[in-house]
Design a protein around this nucleic acid. Structure first.
Lengths: 124, 124
DNA sequence: TAGTATAGTTAGCATTGGCTAACTTGTCAA
DNA sequence: TTGACAAGTTAGCCAATGCTAACTATACTA
């Protein structure tokens, strides 16, 4: 079944944290998202059961190939949505916040249209 | 407390149905939203407890003043978002569907920016 | 080696918001 | 008047996803 908003947020967070450190732990994810340890623990269990994350030999959290595809998809939506909102004159903080919520709900069609628009008219 | 997506959808549906008929019943709302009678019954109970809807003397469902304000807010978001998505070249059906999901999640700031953009550059 | 701190897990609670089953209520026609 | 249908309600199930409390496990320090 398709991932819910919650699952997408966990994957995206793991992806982002992995950019700056190869040693991602549950506690780091919890801090980033503002959730408690048990919430993170259970969510990670679900993602692991779905084959989207795994633990490496040192016990650190890694995205599987499938997980990375989904994480990148969400992250790209996040960056593209933030950009188009900023093109509309919205401040970066608000744009990021809104992108973060919308990213889980737009269809592929709409996302592709926004991306194409940015490519054509975007200022960066 | 702020209304969830679900509550906003019910109010918006009541508002839309009220445009074409002054005799809105729970069953009509359920048909429109694709929900069963018990689901609608409970949701309407919550909205009534929150003072957002009431029943008129004939037992039909009406928005209270507070409910109408919220319904109109959501409905306006819906129409404005649909418009801007169509400006991006998205077909009406997809635009409506996506607007219907996004409308609950964008901030006032973002909504106002989109509305301003449409006013300036919109083709209708 | 014993005590403490950190990380993670388990158990169980609450809320939201769908659902089915089954009951009540009101209307209308035979 | 009775039977049937339509609308609404009540009770209770389920999944998702947050939480606290309390346990375990590991590792470092005195």
């Amino acid at each position: 079944m398709a991932l819910q908003e919650s699952g997408e947020m966990y994957l995206e967070t793991i992806y982002v944290l992995s950019q700056s450190s190869s040693a991602v732990r549950a506690i780091d994810i919890g801090e980033e998202l503002g959730y408690t340890k048990p919430s993170v623990s259970r969510a990670l269990g679900v993602l692991r059961d779905e084959g989207l994350i795994k633990k490496d030999s040192d016990g650190y959290i890694k995205l599987t190939e499938a997980g990375e595809i989904m994480a990148k998809r969400t992250y790209e939506r996040h960056t593209v949505l933030t950009k188009i909102l900023m093109e509309l004159g919205i401040d970066e903080e608000t744009a990021t916040e809104d992108a973060c919520r919308i990213e889980h709900y737009i269809s592929d069609k709409t996302f592709e249209a926004i991306k194409a628009h940015l490519k054509k008219y975007g200022s960066n």
